[in-house]
């Protein structure tokens, strides 16, 4: 009697609906679409900045539309989701050992959060938001 090899059928386009963990993974994957699109916006901004004051001011005014506000909200949510999941993963990706003991994971991720908040407020301050 020949045994058929066990082949599991994995639907290539809908596998992530099988488990909430896969859905969380895919929701993080999707953030790359908005972050990538935002990076392209930054390249366009640099081109406008290099073209002189009128072009730059036109670029800033061009951001003032309903579409742009929606895009920014999506990009902000995606960027923040990327950042928090990235910092949460640092304790798994680079555990630190001192002597016999490992530094607690929360300390590693927590340190990243502290640096993130300080850096963000420093940049907002330097740009004159407050």
């Amino acid at each position: 009697m020949s045994r058929r090899p066990l082949v599991r059928e994995v639907p290539p386009t809908s596998w992530y609906f099988r488990h909430p963990r896969y859905l969380r993974y895919m929701s993080r994957e999707i953030t790359s679409i908005f972050v990538g699109a935002y990076c392209l916006l930054l390249v366009v901004g640099l081109q406008r900045l290099a073209s002189g004051p009128t072009a730059w001011e036109g670029f800033l005014l061009g951001l003032r539309s309903a579409d742009s506000i929606v895009f920014h909200l999506l990009a902000l949510a995606a960027a923040v989701y990327h950042a928090t999941t990235w910092f949460n993963a640092t304790q798994k990706a680079m555990p630190i050992q001192i002597g016999e003991d490992f530094v607690p994971g929360n300390v590693i991720s927590g340190a990243h959060y502290v640096v993130w908040v300080v850096l963000s407020f420093a940049i907002l301050f330097l740009v004159g938001v407050f």
């Binding site: 003032r64 742009s68 950042a83 993130w116 740009v127």
Partner: peptide, 15 residues
């Protein structure tokens, strides 16, 4: 993770 959220906030303010 460190820089894009705050940069988005800045252009969002412009928007």
């Amino acid at each position: 993770a460190f820089f894009i959220p705050v940069i988005v906030v800045l252009t969002f303010m412009a928007a």
